[in-house]
Computed example of a mutant assay.
Amino acid sequence: MRRDFLKLMLGGAGLLALASCSTRDPKFKTYSGPPVTRIDVFKSRRVMTFYSGSRPIKSYNFGLGFAPQGHKDYEGDGKTPEGLYYIDRRNPNSRYHLSVGISYPNEQDKARALAEGVQVGSDIFIHGQGPEGRAARVRDWTVGCIAVTDAEIEDIYAMVPDGTPIMIYP
């Protein structure tokens, strides 16, 4: 009887040890709500709303680039693009905690930059704070991205699949 009790205790301790060695990173959440089918971003109001069909399911406030008004014209202008794009990639090792990519530049953006003789921008993301965001003393501090808190990007990263349309309004 005593031997059986010892085996049970050792087995339980082993399971506890395995559970405590979990490699799951807490920044990777799971999402079991309704599917996100589109995102609307209103730059002037700094509100980003996630929809499932026609029903809004979540909204976030955000910061933008250091020159938030107008459509992104060229690399380094500090503006966030406007128009229809898609979530097209994700970076689990982002300098800004986590990030999901926006499909800028599209073909029209490339053609406009070429016609104007400027370098089109790239690497536009929805991302967390990172070191710059935590140090920033202003609302709009990115170079054209959409910045939310680290906790919010964890939710967004989990709930938004690649291919989701994102409409960015002035």
Results as ranks from 00 to 15, higher is better:
Gly14Cys: 04
Arg3Met: 10
Met159Gly: 00
Lys72Gln: 04
Gly163Ala: 10
Ala67Met: 11
Glu75Val: 04
Ser20Ala: 15
Leu6Val: 15
Ser44Ile: 07
Asn106Pro: 06
Tyr74Gly: 05
Asp88Gln: 01
His71Thr: 02
Phe62Leu: 09
Lys58Gln: 15
Glu152Gln: 09
Tyr169Ile: 05
Val138Tyr: 00
Leu18Asn: 06
Ile126His: 02
Thr164Met: 02
Pro92Trp: 01
Pro68Thr: 03
Cys145Gly: 06
Lys110Arg: 15
Leu16Glu: 05
Tyr86Ile: 03
Asn93Glu: 05
Lys43Pro: 01
Pro34Asn: 07
Cys21Tyr: 10
Gln108Glu: 13
Val143Ile: 09
Tyr96Ile: 04
Ile39His: 11
Thr49Lys: 07
Gln129Phe: 11
Gly121Asp: 05
Lys72Leu: 03
Asp25Arg: 06
Ile124Thr: 08
Ser44Tyr: 11
Glu75Pro: 06
His97Arg: 10
Thr30Phe: 14
Pro105Trp: 04
Leu114Phe: 13
Pro131Val: 12
Gly70Cys: 00
Arg46Cys: 01
Ala136Pro: 09
Gly117Ser: 00
Gly117Pro: 05
Ser52Pro: 12
Arg3Ser: 11
Asp25Lys: 11
Asp77Met: 06
Ser32Ala: 10
Gly101Ser: 05
Pro35Val: 07
Tyr86Cys: 04
Ala115Lys: 15
Phe42Val: 15
Gly76Asn: 03
Tyr85Val: 02
Asn106Tyr: 00
Lys29Ser: 04
Lys27Cys: 09
Phe125Leu: 14
Asp73His: 09
Arg95Met: 15
Pro131Gln: 08
Ala13Glu: 03
Ala136Asn: 09
Ala135Leu: 07
Tyr169Asn: 14
Tyr85His: 01
Ile153His: 08
Ala67Glu: 08
